[in-house]
Nucleic acid binder design. Structure first.
Length: 946
DNA sequence: GGGCTCACG
DNA sequence: GACGTACGTGAGCCCG
């Protein structure tokens, strides 16, 4: 039916429904897995009642439920504090949002949300279109912001009071008719949405003024005529703020509409779909009630998995667990045509979630070609969709011909794109960053800008949030530990070493078993982990520190950093020449030729042939020849060790940096694309690999020059921002050390302050070596100080180092108390925690021997290093929104530093915005007692910027 | 593939 | 009384 006169559109404010349901009902969880579903239950009840009551002459002909998509909208551009003081969403509500979308679809009602727009704007736009078409509109909401839309065929219905709101009710509420509501709101402001308005003016006064002057503009123009001095002054002084407030409260009637009015026509309910959803949610009463009203038989309730029989109940084996359902490779399906794929897409939509895994030709996401996609909707029900398998074994004589029986890649991806991007369908992955990057790189008809996987969950990150420190988080490890299952090893398909082939050469039949199994494993892990996140109390960590990082890092990695090959190549040559010279000298001094790069040969030369003192053999029987040993020998005047030190430095720079980096320059982008591992480090730090861009030299002059090869593109600059002393600041906060906190607040040199306190010397004119010792102690404290370690670091006798430590603890007793408390906590709980709730397990804390020492120091360090890692993660996650619209890209993270590439004329703006985000990154979760300070620099290359 | 060495925070 | 120790990473090289 074409929407026209006589039609009646209902627009339901979905978010309001959810919040009302959440607060009206006691917390309720799904029995089988503990997922919170209380708000979903209430939401479904309301939808059911709505559908049941929508009858009679006044019934709706068209209906939609409108949701808010994200918190960032154009209003944040107008005013960055808009809705800034909204409290954080309750943890047990967040996971219910996608389910309410599913619920809406299950009721066969259009479900609408648009990125960057508030539900109110979408409602306004549909209301306007419907009004223009001559139809009637009822907005089902009690949000007063929507009252500006009332009139001329548009009404509101307050679902709480079941009260109709027309023009007269708006007048009653605001003192003006709908068309002047925004004027009143602009003056009165709104504390809930953080709209400032005119200070001291409420709705009453605002209405009075507007009625007197006619409208807001006239009022502001003639504000000087207002008799009351205070009101006059407020209006004159805050006119701009008031105008801005008006722009904030004014609804946008021209948002892009994802569905036409006609598409909102009421559909008869689909009993099967609805029953299936309600049954999955395990809403017994509601399922029955809905079944009765639809006149269908209620479905058999889903059995909690725990009560199903298990196949691997072998005597003497590991005890059978609920998730140990057998893996049956024969049941996996191969998707070879559009009809089959369409069937799978239906199955995915019915559930609202799907486990996804991509198979490609390479582990390097920037080079990998997509070969196939596997999908899994419930344990054991998985499929593989091959799209680019090729004939032959991949050797020199193999053809590049695609195998028969595959869907064209373009067709398959065009069909999958709406699913992968559907806000109501959760995509579940194991290491989703990999798959997201692969999908983002796909190009074709209908997906010219790639495919953006949203929303997603990641089982690897769930494992990391819950079990960091206990084990690694790769699929094989997790499958083995939590599913008691060993997936088919990839090596059995590809082989290893020189003879290894690529996945596109794997016969499709074999690929199905392997690939579908991975999706199956992922889905089962997700079912297991999802409720556990709550039990382990790391949902906030997962949701705020892990999951959002995937998209942020994917963008950084794909952006890459421009590296100048010529610069590196010239440096390589220069290093090679110098090394050759040094090598000749070294051989001369040694009295013969040997491999300078072999620590074993070098040790023999130094201590056996030349008879130098201090040769110490390690556990492997070889002499130690580390830099510290060679430095000691060189200090004694030995020339050979001094030359070897120089040679080693050059060798390192050449092989690891100037040579290896060149091989990482991407042939098409000309840039270097590192890969960040979110779960690589136990403390919450991220790790960079292939290549590691977190250890580019900086400490020596010669090494630092390598950073000159990291350059900005023409017309751009590199900008580096780094946290100053972030770990010591965190220590000052968590250990609660007044002297340290004050020093940071006052901006005093922290190492000098430490020295001054320990050695009773004045800050002014301090001996640099005294400061250096204090600095070493400060670092030592973060690492879980020991006399031995400090002695080695400072090259002083151990007793002296121990005396320093004793003095330090005597002066800052809180530090020792903090350390003792942290170790005690670790011993009791088996983990330590950061300020932000990240858990780092310390399984070896109760060991004996040297292991205990390691574990103890790691436990002391983890909360400090981890909190610093959490803070920069928070900054990175907020950064895209903060720099949106700027010609700037975030490229690299180096633990306490972020590197950006930005257009020349936007350097200052970027620094201002990025610094603001970084310095406020702990807020509002943690109120630090010390300020976070960020230093910034910029230049044509990384050496200049740092 | 383990051990050593060394680059970074 | 001796043991061996600063925390967290990744990569290249040697050598068995």
């Amino acid at each position: 039916m074409t929407f026209s006169k006589g039609c009646h559109l209902h627009l339901i404010d979905g978010s309001a429904f959810i919040f009302r349901a959440y607060h009206a009902l006691p917390p309720l969880t799904r029995k089988s897995d503990g997922i919170p579903v209380g708000a979903v239950a209430g939401f479904c009840n309301m939808l059911f009642r709505y559908v049941a009551n929508n009858s009679g002459a006044d019934a709706a002909t068209h209906v939609a439920v409108i949701f808010d998509f994200s918190s960032k909208t154009f209003r944040n551009e107008i005013y960055d504090q808009y809705k800034a003081n909204r409290p954080e969403l309750p943890e047990d509500l967040k996971p219910q949002f996608p389910l309410t979308r599913e619920a809406t679809r299950a009721f066969n009602i259009a479900c609408i949300e648009t990125d960057g727009y508030e539900a109110d704007d979408i409602i306004a736009s549909y209301a306007c279109r419907a009004r223009e078409a001559g139809g009637r509109v009822t907005i089902i909401s009690s949000d007063k912001d929507l009252m500006q839309l009332v009139g001329d065929g548009v009404e509101m219905l307050d679902p709480m009071k079941n009260k109709r709101i027309g023009r007269d009710e708006v007048l009653e509420k605001f003192g003006v008719y709908p068309e002047r509501v925004v004027d009143v709101q602009a003056l009165a402001g709104d504390s809930v949405d953080n709209v400032p308005g005119a200070p001291g003016i409420g709705i009453k006064t605002a209405a009075l003024l507007i009625n007197e002057f006619g409208d807001l503009e006239t009022l502001l123009e003639r504000a000087s005529e207002i008799p009351q001095p205070k009101r006059r002054q407020v209006l004159l002084e805050h006119s701009e703020q008031i105008r801005m407030s008006k722009r904030l409260v004014e609804l946008d009637c021209d948002t892009p509409l994802t569905e036409t009015l006609d598409e909102l026509e009421i559909q008869p309910s689909d009993p099967e779909k609805l029953m299936h959803f309600l049954n999955l949610m395990e809403f017994r009463t509601l399922t029955k009630r809905v079944a009765d009203s639809l006149g269908v038989a209620p479905p058999v309730p889903v059995e909690p998995i725990a009560s199903l029989p298990h196949a691997e109940d072998t005597p003497g084996g590991t005890p059978p667990e609920p998730e140990r359902l057998p893996f049956d490779h024969a049941r996996y399906e191969c998707i070879r045509d559009a009809a089959t794929l369409a069937r799978w897409i239906d199955a995915i939509q019915a559930r609202g979630h799907v486990a996804v895994d991509t198979e490609t030709t390479s582990l390097d996401e920037m080079q990998a070609d997509l070969v196939g996609i596997s999908l899994c909707v419930e344990p054991g029900r998985a499929a593989y969709l091959p799209i680019c398998h090729r004939e032959g074994g991949g050797d020199l004589f193999a053809s590049d011909k695609l195998c028969d029986g595959q869907m064209p890649a373009e067709q398959a991806l065009a069909m999958l794109k709406p699913v992968l991007e559907d806000p109501a369908i959760l995509k579940i992955g194991q290491n989703m960053k990999y798959d997201a990057k692969i999908f983002a790189r796909q190009r074709g008809e209908g997906y010219a800008d790639g495919i953006v996987v949203e929303p997603y969950d990641d089982t690897m990150l769930m494992s990391y949030a819950m079990y960091s420190g206990l084990h690694n988080h790769g699929m094989d490890e997790l499958a083995d530990r939590y599913l008691g299952h060993t997936p088919i090893p990839i090596k059995s398909l590809l082989g290893s070493g020189k003879g290894a082939t690529t996945f596109d050469r794997v016969p499709i039949d074999e690929a199905v078993k392997y690939a579908a199994e991975d999706a199956d494993v992922t889905l089962r892990l997700w079912q297991l982990f999802k409720p556990k996140l709550h039990q382990v109390q790391v949902t906030t960590v997962y949701e705020t520190l892990e999951r959002p990082l995937v998209a942020v890092l994917a963008r950084m990695e794909m952006a890459g950093v421009l590296v100048d090959r010529d610069t590196l190549s010239r440096m390589s040559n220069a290093f090679a020449q110098k090394m050759a010279g040094l090598e000749a000298e070294i051989h001369e001094l040694a009295g013969g030729s040997f491999n300078v790069g072999s620590p074993k040969q070098l040790g023999e030369i130094l201590f056996d042939r030349l008879g130098l003192p201090g040769g110490v053999k390690g556990k492997t029987g070889a002499y130690a020849t580390g830099a510290d040993v060679l430095e000691d020998l060189a200090a004694e005047g030995a020339e050979l060790p001094a030359r070897v030190l120089d040679w080693r430095q050059l060798s390192k720079l050449k092989s690891t940096y100037t040579d290896a980096l060149q091989t990482h320059i991407h042939p098409e982008t000309g840039r270097v694309h590192t890969s960040y591992s979110i779960t690589g480090a136990n403390t919450g730090r991220i790790a960079s690999t292939d290549p590691n861009l977190q250890n580019i030299p900086v400490r020596t002059e010669e090494g630092r020059r390598i950073r000159e090869a990291f350059v900005a593109a023409p017309g751009k600059r590199l900008v580096s921002l780094d946290y100053s002393q972030i770990e010591l600041r965190i220590l000052a906060h968590v250990a609660d050390i007044p002297a340290l906190k004050e020093a940071f607040r006052e901006g005093i040199d922290i190492h000098a302050m430490t020295a001054s306190q320990m050695f009773n010397v004045p800050l002014e004119g301090m001996d640099p070596s005294v400061r250096r010792q204090a600095k070493a102690i400060n670092f030592g404290v973060i690492y879980g100080i020991s006399g031995f370690g400090l002695a080695r670091n400072l090259r002083i006798p151990r007793a002296e180092a121990q005396a320093f430590i004793d003095t330090y603890f005597a002066r800052f007793p809180g530090i020792r108390e903090y350390m003792d408390a942290t170790v005690a906590y670790a011993k009791e709980h088996g983990f330590v925690q950061t300020l932000f709730g990240r858990k780092i397990h310390t399984p070896e804390i109760n060991s004996r021997g040297p292991t205990a020492g390691f574990a103890r120091r790691a436990a002391i360090n983890a909360p400090i290093q981890g909190a610093a890692a959490d803070i920069i993660r928070r900054a990175m996650i907020r950064m895209p929104a903060a720099i949106e619209g700027l010609p700037a890209k975030m490229l690299l993270q180096v633990h306490d530093e972020l590197l950006f590439e930005v257009a020349e004329d936007a350097v200052d703006t970027l620094i201002t915005r990025a610094r603001e985000v970084m310095e406020a990154a702990a807020d509002p979760a943690v109120r630090l007692d010390v300020p976070l300070v960020v230093d910034a620099g910029h230049g044509m290359n990384w050496a200049e910027a740092h």
